[in-house]
Design a protein around this nucleic acid. Structure first.
Lengths: 344, 344
DNA sequence: CCGGGAAGGTTTAGCGGTAAACTTCGCAAG
DNA sequence: CTTGCGAAGTTTACCGCTAAACCTTCCCGG
């Protein structure tokens, strides 16, 4: 039913190897005339290479694994980022003849198991924590870790310049005149993405002359609901705060909603700045001012590195940090009360 | 380096086939003692089955393809739906020992090619149009088509009850007293998802006594931007319209933004109702009243069908329609002017 | 005390491809 | 003339696993 190399070989009157060589572009060993004849027959028969067979024989699959840890809820692709990365990688890789295996990881051992079991040619790790990546011991498969600041030399980090993002946010708020600011983000250990953003944010605020005691933090999950709850109690719990930097747009939008629900106004009473520039950041009123990541570049870079490593593996590489930029929309304004107090 | 069946066989002093049988749970042919011994050695050696080899030998891969057409922009996973489906399927399938190949389809022939080339055990089609599915000729691989109303008997449709969704929307607006309504959605050929929604919407409006000439339509893409543009010109172009049913939340939210930008109020001047209940539907002001799809059920159902068909294939099946419900948030209210006019 | 079956394996023969080593032939150089 | 060598193939062996057919024992009923 399905045409095999041997079917083509029979029709063309050549050996299977010759056909194989033609199919793989190893034209050095085959005459132009034969190449043409073989290709014509292959096209007529609708030949499609059998991927498992090729993987087995060549011990290389042309498959790149997109590995994503599954959380409590056991579900994948929850974050818009992960989605952009996985979808974008598929596009880039497909154009170069590679395939994407999407795999949820329940347990770190599964990373190595999946690589071996599938003879993966490369791996992209998405949403893994630095600690998880540190613990990984992978053989010699090229491995790119998105948003990683891990020091595992086998995992090439590709991420946005989170430190600079934090700085941009801090500078924007401080320049607007805010003197009591809140950093809202998930708990983090060590540095990681959130740590970098915090670090940059804090540095920019200090540079602008804020008192360290006036840069406060709240640990919340990066969800709309957690943000909303924080927004609701913000005026009561932290009346002095006039601006919030949230490490994710979901969170920022939730905070805006909570503030509004509690009778406050954004940016009248409290300014809010987010991170990511997800699509809905433009859908709110006011629009969310946020730090935009260059996702297409991140994906392109990750793909480029993976393919490069697969095709001419050059071992250890420096991580890549992509540029970020401030997108002004309307959720940041000078502080109302503080300015008056300062003027008084 | 990597343990193979033969390594285990050597250590255990049995044949490779015995080990294979143990690994595949064909315990009928092996004594309990041997099973235990083999499993112990396999665990100690960290045995991981080689998927390509198994696929090749068994001519069945334990892989389900998630096939998604790539659009103009060549990118995948753009819609939140597709993401939910792909991510959710992975979770369900993984728990049953299957894997997911994510593949962008540029050309319909690639569907059959991918199935053959990978010896896929099953296929899920996401975002294919009915016309595309009609044209497909696939062998005997179980195939589920998400959101399809295609009549191709080989593609089992799994979708929401779009007709009922349209009805719910129409009834809600009519019950609120609206007499001039607008249906905004992408152009559609034949029935399909949009056609079903339109049909249900129209039927509900007519049932409520609206004049057919007062049920108007606008063809727009399902994007925030297109919605916004429609919202901006709505008052000018269609002053009589007091309520809009948009076939997608992105569109609905855009329409709300456009109306607000043009100085109108939602739901004061115009009511808006969406479809999908995406996360951001709760993030806007007012919150978007919308028809919610039961995505977890859709995904679960699709997975169940695929696995069922793979494991005890029973041929043609009826398509599945999942229930929808109206989620009330605040973007629908009685019409201000019309009510006054009616009372005058 | 022989035929027959179940239990518990083993053997054989690939699946469709590829790497690497080997053949053949024609031709230019020594 | 040989020899040497590149072009154009071919042959061989194997990748890791499985389906299906084939062996042994041992036990049991007739």
């Amino acid at each position: 039913m399905t045409a095999r190399l041997s079917d083509i070989a029979d029709e063309a009157g050549v050996s299977v190897m010759t056909v194989s060589n033609v199919m793989n572009g190893k034209s050095a060993r085959v005459s132009p005339a034969t190449i043409e004849r073989v290709l014509a027959i292959a096209a007529r028969l609708g030949y499609v290479p059998n991927i498992p067979a090729r993987s087995l024989a060549a011990n290389s699959s042309h498959i790149v694994g997109a590995l994503v840890p599954v959380g409590e809820n056991n579900s994948l692709l929850v974050s818009p980022h992960t989605v952009a990365v996985v979808g974008g990688m598929e596009t880039h890789l497909r154009h170069r003849g590679y395939h994407v295996l999407l795999r949820g990881i329940e347990n770190e051992d599964q990373v190595a198991q999946t690589i071996r079991g599938w003879s993966l040619d490369g791996v992209v790790l998405v949403e893994f924590t630095d600690a998880q990546i540190d613990r990984l011991s992978i053989g010699s498969v090229p491995l790119v870790a998105i948003d990683s600041y891990s020091s595992n030399p086998r995992a090439i980090g590709v991420r946005s310049d989170d430190h600079r993002g934090g700085r941009l946010a801090g500078a924007r708020l401080a320049d607007a005149g805010h003197r009591h600011v809140l950093f809202a983000g998930p708990p983090y250990q060590g540095m990681g993405v959130v740590g970098q953003r915090w670090d940059g944010f804090r540095a920019a605020c200090l540079d602008a002359g804020l008192d360290p005691r006036d840069i406060v933090t709240e640990e919340v999950l990066t969800t709309f609901e957690d943000g909303r709850r924080l927004g609701l109690r913000l005026r009561r719990d932290r009346p002095e705060v006039t601006a919030v930097f949230a490490t994710a747009d979901h969170l920022a939008v939730g905070i805006m909603a909570g503030i509004a629900e509690a009778g406050g106004s954004v940016p009248g009473d409290v300014s809010v700045i987010g991170f990511d520039d997800l699509d809905f950041a433009g859908y709110t009123t006011p629009g969310l001012t946020t730090i935009a990541q260059n996702m297409p570049a991140k994906v392109a870079e990750a793909s480029r590195i993976i393919l490069d490593e697969i095709e001419h593996g050059q071992g250890p590489r420096a991580p890549v940090s992509l540029d970020v930029r401030l997108v002004e929309r309307g959720s940041v304004a000078p502080p109302a009360r503080d300015v008056r107090q300062a003027q008084a």
